[in-house]
Design a protein around this nucleic acid. Sequence first.
DNA 1: CTAATACTCTAACGAATATTAGAATAACGC
DNA 2: GCGTTATTCTAATATTCGTTAGAGTATTAG
Lengths: 219, 219
Amino acid sequence: MKKRALKDLLYEQVARIGRGVSSPKRLEMLELLAQGEKTVENLADGLSIDVKLASAHLKALREARLVESTRDGKFMVYRLSGADVAHLWVRLHEVAQAHLVELRLALDEMSAPSTELVELERDALLKQARRGEVIVIDVRPRAEYDAAHLPYARSMPLAELERHLKEMPRNKQIVAYCRGPFCLFADEAVHLLKAKGYRVRKLLDGVSEWQAAGMPLVT
Amino acid sequence: MKKRALKDLLYEQVARIGRGVSSPKRLEMLELLAQGEKTVENLADGLSIDVKLASAHLKALREARLVESTRDGKFMVYRLSGADVAHLWVRLHEVAQAHLVELRLALDEMSAPSTELVELERDALLKQARRGEVIVIDVRPRAEYDAAHLPYARSMPLAELERHLKEMPRNKQIVAYCRGPFCLFADEAVHLLKAKGYRVRKLLDGVSEWQAAGMPLVT
DNA sequence: CTAATACTCTAACGAATATTAGAATAACGC
DNA sequence: GCGTTATTCTAATATTCGTTAGAGTATTAG
């Protein structure tokens, strides 16, 4: 039966994508790359792994065509091969959160120290941000803000937050976001600002989650 | 650093989902289960594999919480653990089609015998179907039609198509769909009907693709 | 109760994967 | 050219995965 061989071929190709996203390290890389392009060293540092190992995982991602690379002088710069790859990552962690109790428990524990992090309605938030009723701060490194960020968001990298505290209005609601629900930057920002008496909440979305929900980004 | 351990835990959980979808057999099972619940034997037959092997893959899918099972008499009935799992499958094969040339080539070759299979605009198709300007036929087994089907679609399983030819109007455009872009039923229906002189096209969507695009289903 | 059916579990083996270390390559600065 | 830096490739390891066969479990039919 020739049909079987053809079918096997088709599903085998999709499984290449599946194998690409079947390792925790590679998923973490995809999430980082969803924030903007990175060098091999950037990625290795971000994941706290050896450059050689990062390179091996990047090879696997390249073979699944989930990432592309170009050379920039001495550096190899990697990026996602499309916005659809970021959306695949979003869908994966959504499915994981929906069905894996262990993940929900770990996420609850993670966010416990910074109390009352409410996920906001996206449309309402956008409207309030446009009117200036809430201050949206992007606490990722500035390069990631430059690659893409939420409308009306201000870049306020975690490292600089303490130095720029005086620029933050005390009378307004502040909303902090970072790379997504698995990133701790926004939690730390919330913790810090709350201690200083600001009214602040965390947005669980990163730029990919925001965009996958059909919301606009500024690039 | 405690953060590392926590992060590892989080991505490891998402990787459980990734591992679930990293095998061609399991992907084919998910696509079949997206058509409605099935017994182990159903699935093994559908994939042309041993029941034991099917059971082993189902165990992997259960551990990733992508499927659930209940006992019905002698039979174990498996189903997807949510519509989000079907949508994950859709996103996976969309990403694969977008980035893997090998897959696009294989799909082209597959559809070659039945000429001119145009993907239709979904909204336009729905409108035309409602007005009765096109006849939408669902050529999957009737049980799958019963589980969920496109609005205004008629069940016309491939096996019965030849017997019910006279019920098909010759003057109207016919649109056939099946389990999705990797399924051959609609191709065969198109081939058969074209040979009999009908005007017929294939819709590449299955119910999951249709629903993932935000279109309504009848259940 | 026994026999048959439908499925799962265990054991086993080869294939594929993750990780590490060491050699090789490619571009830069001198 | 030479040394340095950034990255990949090769080789070797331990581990996991896919597949098959055989034993075991749950349910139904008689």
